[in-house]
Design a protein around this nucleic acid. Structure first.
Length: 467
RNA sequence: GCUCCCUUCGUCUAGUGGCCCAGGACACCGCCCUCUCAAGGCGGGAACACGAGUUCGAGUCUCGUAGGGAGCACCA
């Protein structure tokens, strides 16, 4: 039987970090085992579900490259099917109608709590052969086994046993005619042939009752794998106050999709001491059974390190498009300066995100507007600055080929000619090119300014030297 | 309250009874390299929650304690 996994978010917001990891694990498990990955939208909560959220989830997954093989399948399109299955259960006596009001149920819960028991439905209508009647409070409840226990072997948590006496006859169809989650998921997972249910561990408690529904329906029970939560850096539940929780926010902040994927795959899973995994390696090495049981914390610092690893090792041409997008986001017109891929080569050892890179690249796409007074004072207004600038200008103007290596040769030649150290030559040039004391290596800094730009900036710097 | 789950350096983790007076990575500190800033190299400090037990031997198995989490809806 082919493996089939699914990612089943409810469309009530953007795709967040936790959901993305769940989707990643589902996707990887399907890929490694040659199976299918299905996207299902759990939109039966009419109050909170929105079309924008559906789109946001699809966009987030597309950016990450987590493509589904089937779907999206919408639960709201399957109402007739849920009804049909509920009718079947009713006919077989595996479910029954109940008529308590919400207030009565609430009173029941409170009484149980007061008695030190867990709040459960008391089964009032369970064995009462009352004729069907119309009632605004009519719901359908599942007839849960009253004895024995449910045992399942969770792929990440291990063996879990649950006594049926802990479970009550839960509602499978609400009075408003909509199915409830615990019922709809089972019907969906059966119909879609899901073999591995991979989801957040906030669902472990639901699993035993769902397994009972599988049994009632005579369907094979799938494998379950419950993933531990991803916490914020402070160990608290991840939320907006921790900063970015939306996957798309990470794109906006300058992270590469595969860097995020790499970070996420290592959060709760490992393969020996390996830290860097290409997507291809992940699909080969990842095994849901190797996932850790304990929750983990989200650490942007390590994500940033990983992001830089990819910035440094990817082919610049491959990330040029993503970088160009960031230039535009920063209000920079890429056509007014050097080729993005050249900028990447110069800056990738110096920044951790594409957003930072775009910011630092600004100096080559527009005239210098701010001169650091300290830089001007220290490196332009001294005895050697003007001679260095003049000699450099002359050599640069005569350079046959405008390339970093050639420019490096010019800097060395000027240093030799004036009997100065490299630093004495690079510093004034750096200030001339950027107005600051910090930039990539001097040959790249000059190169990126372009010949015309570099000569003009040198002239400007000489003017500012006070000479 | 009840049920279930979790617990190795600050963080992510390796570890499946002897290879562990616990390894890697991020972060941090120091040194080296160096045209600035980085990147890189080398080195350093830093953890088995606690207590019993099983065993010749426990981070690894069992029980308990403490701490943390999840769920207990006509929400998913």
């Amino acid at each position: 039987m082919t493996v089939r996994t699914r990612f089943a978010p409810s469309p009530t917001g953007f795709l967040h970090i936790g959901g993305a990891r769940t989707a990643l694990y589902c996707w990887l498990e399907a890929r490694r085992r040659g199976g299918d990955f299905i996207l299902r939208i759990e939109d039966t909560d009419r109050e909170r579900s929105t079309d924008e959220a559906v789109q946001a989830i699809i966009d987030g997954m597309a950016w990450l490259g987590l493509v589904h093989d089937e779907g999206p399948i919408y639960q709201t399109h399957r109402m007739d099917r849920y009804r049909e299955v509920a009718e079947k259960l009713l006919a077989e006596g595996k479910a029954y109608y109940a008529y308590e009001t919400k207030e009565e149920i609430e009173a029941m819960r409170e009484a149980a709590m007061a008695a030190g028991l867990k709040p459960r439905y008391n089964g009032f209508y369970r064995d009462r052969a009352e004729p069907l009647r119309d009632d605004p409070n009519r719901v359908i409840r599942f007839r849960n086994p009253s004895e024995g226990s449910v045992v399942f072997d969770d792929k990440v948590k291990g063996r879990i046993e649950w006594s049926n006496t802990e479970l009550d006859d839960f509602v499978i169809f609400r009075s408003d005619g909509f199915p409830t989650y615990n019922f709809a998921v089972v019907v969906d997972d059966i119909d879609m042939g899901i073999t591995e249910v991979i989801r957040g561990d906030d669902h472990v408690n639901n699993t035993p009752r769902q397994i009972n529904v599988y049994h009632a329906l005579g369907a094979p029970v799938p494998e379950f794998a419950h993933l531990p939560m991803i916490l914020g850096p402070d160990g608290q539940k991840l939320s907006k106050r921790h900063g970015a929780v939306s996957v798309m926010q990470y794109r906006d902040d300058g992270f590469l999709p595969h860097a995020l994927l790499n970070y996420l795959v290592r959060l709760g899973w490992s393969h020996g001491d390996q830290e860097i995994f290409s997507v291809e390696e992940m699909t080969r090495l990842f095994d849901i059974a190797d996932v850790n049981k304990a929750a983990s914390r989200f650490d942007v610092t390590k994500l940033s390190w990983l992001n830089q690893q990819y910035l440094k090792n990817d082919n610049p041409a491959d990330i040029a498009a993503e970088f160009t997008w960031h230039l535009q986001q920063a209000g920079i017109d890429p056509s007014t300066g050097p080729k993005p891929k050249d900028v990447i080569v110069a800056l990738r050892d110096r920044v951790q995100t594409l957003k930072e890179m775009a910011e630092r690249a600004r100096t080559w796409y527009a005239p210098i507007t701010e001169w650091d007074p300290k830089a001007v004072e220290k490196h332009l207004r001294n005895d050697t600055a003007v001679p260095v600038l003049n000699a450099s200008r002359e050599a640069l103007a005569a350079l046959p080929e405008w390339a970093p290596e050639a420019i490096h040769g010019v800097v060395e030649a000027v240093a030799a000619k004036l009997a100065l150290g490299m630093g004495k030559v690079a510093a004034p040039l750096r200030v001339a090119m950027t107005g600051t004391q910090v930039s990539p290596s001097i040959e790249h800094t000059v190169y990126l300014a372009g010949r015309e730009g570099a000569l003009a900036r040198i002239d400007d710097a000489i003017a500012r030297s006070g000479a």
